[in-house]
Design a binder for these strands. Structure first.
Length: 260
DNA sequence: ATGACTGGAGTTTCCAGA
């Protein structure tokens, strides 16, 4: 069995005790983290190693930051896109090979306000992901996972109020079109494959307005896998428990189980 | 009740998050 997880922890330093508690609780084989908000210097390599996890981290000062934790040493680590031109992407995309699976941890830009330059950067980032997978992998043959905070809720079922949120950031038609094109490369959304009609299944809830308690959330965090890897998918879930702990991340972990 | 969130930078207030 291979247990794969992704979690936007909203600061690895502020959430280190939660992360350690959760690793002991669920014992995933591979964990993709986003928003570590740490430089390599500040990243808790030693504390994670003490729990049996090796880590590859790509971070920066104050914002962004992605990592891959694994019970085996991550191999062939890639940071950012292969052309290396986009500096910000070096805090938003990291890949490594673990047990024959090419695992990507991604933090897709939030996009700020709809129509801004930053919004266009978000769309471009998603289109570049599509191009990257197209150029490097075959979905029918390669074992590929794209895990992370996509900052896009793909379908109306993935948001608490589709009418209210239509046209807003993370649920705008242009973002959904872009994310759909990325999926059409040959990815399977593991959670939706296992729970095709489950409403109210969110991974992010605003800290304000009692959103978690009222389950007003969005499904923004995903584990997508190539069709080849999806053939081995056994289960998928959203782990809401750590979102209920004291001083939580605003995101919940997502998990997928494979017969591998 | 006219407010009600969080983290980080870096300073006492702002920005970004989604």
């Amino acid at each position: 069995m291979l247990v794969l997880a992704t979690w936007n922890i909203n600061s690895v330093r502020m959430r280190l005790e939660h992360l350690k508690r959760w690793l002991k609780l669920r014992a995933p084989d591979v964990v993709c983290l986003q928003e570590t908000k740490a430089t390599d210097r500040d990243f808790p390599f030693a504390e994670l190693e003490a729990l049996g996890y090796a880590a590859a981290h790509a971070g920066g000062k104050g914002r962004n930051g992605v990592a891959i934790l694994a019970k085996e040493e991550p191999q062939d680590v890639m940071i950012g896109f292969p052309d290396g031109e986009d500096e910000e992407a070096k805090e938003r995309l990291i890949a490594a090979t673990i047990r024959g699976v090419r695992v990507h941890s991604v933090y897709i830009p939030n996009g700020g306000s709809v129509g801004s330059d930053y919004f266009l950067y978000k769309l471009e980032f998603i289109y570049r992901l599509r191009e990257y997978f197209e150029n490097h992998f075959d979905p029918e043959r390669d074992l590929v996972a794209l895990c992370g905070d996509f900052n896009v809720a793909p379908e109306p079922i993935d948001v608490y109020d589709p009418e209210l949120l239509a046209g807003q950031i993370c649920f705008h038609e242009r973002e959904r079109t872009a994310i759909k094109l990325l999926q059409e490369w040959g990815f399977v959304d593991t959670y939706r494959a296992v729970h095709p009609n489950q409403p109210g299944a969110y991974t992010w809830w605003d800290y304000q307005f009692g959103a978690f308690k009222a389950n007003r959330g969005l499904r923004l965090d995903h584990i997508w896998v190539s069709k080849a890897l999806a053939q081995r998918l056994k289960d998928a879930l959203i782990d809401r428990e750590p979102r209920s702990w004291k001083r939580p991340s605003d995101h919940a972990p997502v998990m997928a189980y494979f017969d591998l």
